[in-house]
Write a protein that binds this DNA or RNA. Structure first.
Lengths: 172, 172
DNA sequence: CTGCCTGCAAAGGATTTGCACTCAT
DNA sequence: ATGAGTGCAAATCCTTTGCAGGCAG
């Protein structure tokens, strides 16, 4: 029923991989599927956590492969990662700016560390409960402008999460 | 000379520790001195790196103690840490809102639940060269306002560094 | 004196790497 | 066929922890 829908974005990612001459393997498909599912549930999975889910989905896939896959797919631009303060890094499908659904962080990340365009959602994490949520679009526009004008620094607004206290954890 | 000046802030920190009933030990003094010196040089040291310097300054201090000290002193409020995206955490002396950086206003602070912050200003890190620099005061004011109004989320503007490309690394 | 802080060493846990093999192309 | 990807396992790396003793207060 919805396995097809879920597969849409995975398919797109696989397609892009093919275009790039990257190989489609069970491990990569599993990783993509896991992340896609998490994205839709607005979950934010770390490499380790992704590994766990992949293990249940495709037990033959080794943990090390998951790490290598995440690196490779991020390099290929089909995945994005967001650094959370202190609590590691989480991965997302790099949606081609199409269906910027709530909870998803699109970002066109080219190869490696060389992409100026970080036009995705900014994430914020609560230092008390650890919850990660999406910030309103454009929250960092002003900051980006200041940084650019002032220091010539090009901010990547979706690469690192901001920290603070969420509404539930703010002492009133 | 300036060895005295260096000691000023360390002294202040030690004073606060005393007030809190915390003990003043060689290890703690060494850690504070190392961080104070780094701060003045605008360096951003990780726990590990601090450990190295402490080792040369006070060889008898064990690495494990450095970690425990950093945790303890941060808890006591005399140290602050900033999470850098992906590259760990760096420590600073928690300046009592006096002579932090040019133009930094004392952040209004509510609770102490998890972060007695302090370094007061936002950091930005270049994803290409790794350099960490201070952002202009107030860069995140607008973002903080939006987050508060929109989500009731209280942003901690100095707890995590923003990522991007510094002027030297931005592709022209 | 007391017990907070430390030294030491060993455990821990996440990520990486060398190597040989396999499978996608 | 052929080399990109993978499995496996060992190696790292940073950080934490248990315990006993030492020093600050």
């Amino acid at each position: 029923m919805n396995a097809n829908h879920d597969g849409d974005r995975v398919e797109a990612a696989l397609g892009r991989l093919r275009e790039l001459g990257e190989r489609i393997t069970p491990a990569r498909q599993a990783v993509l599927r896991v992340i896609d599912t998490a994205d839709r549930a607005e979950e934010h999975l770390s490499a380790e956590h992704i590994g766990e889910r992949v293990a249940t989905l495709e037990p033959s896939v080794h943990r090390a492969t998951v790490y290598r896959t995440l690196t490779a797919l991020t390099g290929a631009g089909v995945l994005t990662h967001v650094h959370l303060g202190g609590t590691g890094t989480v991965y997302h499908l790099a949606t081609p700016a199409s269906e910027a659904a709530p909870g998803v962080s699109p970002a066109a990340y080219g190869t490696d560390v060389s992409e100026p365009h970080g036009h995705g959602h900014t994430h914020v994490q609560c230092v008390v409960c650890g919850r990660v949520q999406d910030a309103p679009p454009g929250v960092l526009d002003e900051a980006a402008r200041i940084m650019r004008d002032d220091l010539g620094f090009e901010l990547d607004t979706s690469h690192a999460a901001l920290l603070g206290r969420c509404a539930d954890c703010v002492p009133t």
